[in-house]
């Protein structure tokens, strides 16, 4: 006999899975599966969706799934439940990234309920950002957010650091684009196909004609020259740049980084700001090492973000629930 409370728990976990699908993911690959069974929600990596060229170690895939996990936690809190998360619980099954069960004590301190309401508003923004400075109190709030998720947010503020980030991003960008396999992978994940539920929309990426080179270039998704928001993101070293990092560099750290990333992004969205990734420098091993050295970081950088005010970007499509959510009665 299932009690009303159990039914409520299941409903809350199901909602958590649905909300999790709104998380950001590398190239919008949405590399996850959710399994709802016996009052617990399993977050699984779908490694068939891993980017073989860009992400051979599954680092970015795990970060993406970590973001989904954060959404699930936020959703549970807004349903009035606490979440007990068991990360990488089974070393024999590395695809099982997290196991979530509910507790009766929702975590009210984190302000998750307010984050749930902006969950669908969060978007990856590759447009031109306003010149407006991000206030210091916002940045320190974001630092605290990341710290609460076992991660560190490093605000790139010193001029020589900005110069280094810009230079390393350009170097990494060139290195990545020199690889035809990398370009082919991007081509495969960039689309203007209305029937497709994943991948990056050509309309959501900046139009780049190869003549204008931004100081901190965004990833070139615009393979077909069909990009939309003119006249380019105008991504400079004076914009607000932050590095998100973790103490270690193993799957558990990547998962934590994903949670911290999504929570940070939701806080950014809640405050009316937009954010977008500039991750080339942390993807190429050599520039990643240099980034650590030149910024004097002891942590491992997992993500580089630009933050600012920007007009809305078109919403990304989501894979159908029937394809990502499995439930055993």
């Amino acid at each position: 006999m299932t009690s009303v409370l159990e039914l409520r728990r299941t409903a809350a976990l199901r909602r958590a899975a649905v909300r999790a699908t709104f998380a950001p993911s590398v190239h919008n690959t949405q590399p996850w599966r959710f399994v709802l069974r016996d009052g617990e929600l399993g977050v699984y990596a779908d490694r068939s969706r891993r980017l073989e060229v860009l992400d051979p170690t599954s680092r970015q895939l795990t970060i993406s799934c970590g973001s989904a996990l954060m959404n699930a936690r936020v959703s549970l809190a807004s349903s009035g439940f606490g979440a007990k998360v068991d990360r990488l619980p089974d070393s024999a099954h590395s695809d099982l990234l997290a196991r979530i069960t509910t507790t009766d004590q929702p975590d009210t301190s984190a302000g998750f309920a307010a984050l749930d309401s902006v969950l669908e508003l969060r978007q990856t923004n590759r447009r031109r950002f306003d010149d407006e400075q991000v206030p210091a109190e916002v940045l320190s709030a974001l630092e605290e957010t990341a710290a609460a998720e076992h991660s560190t947010l490093f605000v790139v503020s010193r001029e020589e650091h900005r110069v280094a980030v810009a230079r390393l991003t350009r170097t990494a960008d060139v290195l990545e684009n020199a690889d035809p396999a990398y370009r082919a992978e991007i081509r495969a994940w960039t689309t203007d196909d209305p029937g497709r539920r994943d991948g990056v929309r050509e309309l959501a990426v900046p139009y780049l004609d190869g003549l204008i080179q931004d100081e901190v270039p965004l990833r070139v998704f615009d393979i077909g020259g069909m990009g939309s928001p003119p006249p380019g993101p105008h991504s400079t070293r004076s914009q607000c740049l932050v590095v998100l990092g973790t103490e270690g560099d193993r799957p558990i750290d990547w998962l934590r980084a994903g949670e911290a990333l999504e929570r940070t992004l939701l806080e950014i969205t809640k405050r009316g700001f937009a954010a977008g990734p500039v991750t080339q420098a942390v993807e190429v091993p050599s520039t990643r090492i240099q980034l650590r050295a030149e910024l004097g970081l002891t942590m491992y950088p997992q993500m580089l973000l630009r933050i600012g005010r920007a007009p809305l970007s078109p919403a990304a499509r989501r894979r159908r629930l029937v394809d990502v959510l499995v439930e055993d009665a």
Binding site: A11, R14, R15, L325
Partner: peptide, 17 residues
Amino acid sequence: MIEVASGAGSDELLGQR
């Protein structure tokens, strides 16, 4: 499986089989 829902109770129906 309820893929999309709009209106009363829609939040609860999503993803239900």
